[in-house]
């Protein structure tokens, strides 16, 4: 089994550790991982803001970089949505086989190391992963397989308030939404909040750094290393 890893821009630039963990999880599962150096970004930031020409320009880097010979795997629900749903329409090209990391690991039926034995975690559903890709069980099952107990997170489906440019167009609303999410995580009794999306991770971490809260951890990191005092 061979896959092409898409780091995504946020993964590449801000959360390289999470992407490394994603790659390691794939290798642990005996998957050959290619990293295509030509990759840049899927164009989602511009696409969601309505700048289609700009989005096309950037999305073409995706089309140039990746082949259709092997599945593309990435550790971001929203970029997976862009790459699988919107990008092919935007560029008028054949769709790619795109997998969000947790759904791919589940699909392979991998065993997960017991990295979270005895830990209690909460999982935040990122919007596009939940509603466009319909993936909500896979990340939870993987976390449970890693030994974690999942604390129910109140309204885990509510948006964390990131929303790309929304976060700076409506900053007060965006921050208030993050506060609700952080409060729900604190109330859940979990030791950490896990998300499969670098966008949510960036937003919630940025807010938690100001007002406190449980650590927020990318799913790949949570699975690979477990959630402990050293992670997050």
């Amino acid at each position: 089994m061979r896959v092409q890893l898409f780091a995504t821009c946020l993964g590449d630039l801000i959360f390289p550790d999470a992407v490394r963990d994603a790659e390691a999880l794939l290798r642990d599962a005996d998957v050959d991982v290619d990293f295509v150096e030509r990759q840049v970004c899927c164009g989602q930031p511009a696409f969601n803001a309505g700048h289609r020409k700009a989005a096309k320009r950037v999305a073409r880097t995706f089309d140039k970089a990746f082949s259709r010979d092997h599945p593309i795997v990435l550790a971001s629900g929203s970029c997976a949505t862009m790459a699988s749903h919107y990008l092919p329409k935007l560029l008028d090209i054949e769709p790619y086989e795109v997998w969000e990391l947790s759904s791919f690991l589940e699909h392979l039926g991998v065993e997960v190391a017991s990295t979270n034995t005895g830990r209690t975690l909460a999982y935040h559903d990122s919007c596009h992963m939940l509603r466009d890709l319909d993936i909500s069980d896979a990340p939870r099952r993987l976390l449970e397989k890693s030994g974690a107990t999942l604390a129910p997170l109140e309204r885990s489906d509510l948006c964390c308030g990131f929303g790309g440019t929304f976060s700076v167009r409506q900053p007060e609303v965006s921050v208030a939404m993050a506060d609700d999410k952080l409060a729900a995580a604190a109330d859940s009794g979990a030791e950490a909040l896990v998300t499969a999306d670098p966008g949510c991770l960036m937003h919630l971490t940025g807010r938690a750094n100001r007002v406190g809260g449980v650590p927020i951890v990318h799913l790949a990191t949570a699975l690979r290393h477990g959630v402990g005092p050293t992670s997050g």
């Binding site: 489906d157 929304f166 167009r169």
Partner: peptide, 10 residues
Amino acid sequence: LPHASSLCGA
């Protein structure tokens, strides 16, 4: 108004 949304899709 078109930007008064985080595009969460709910």
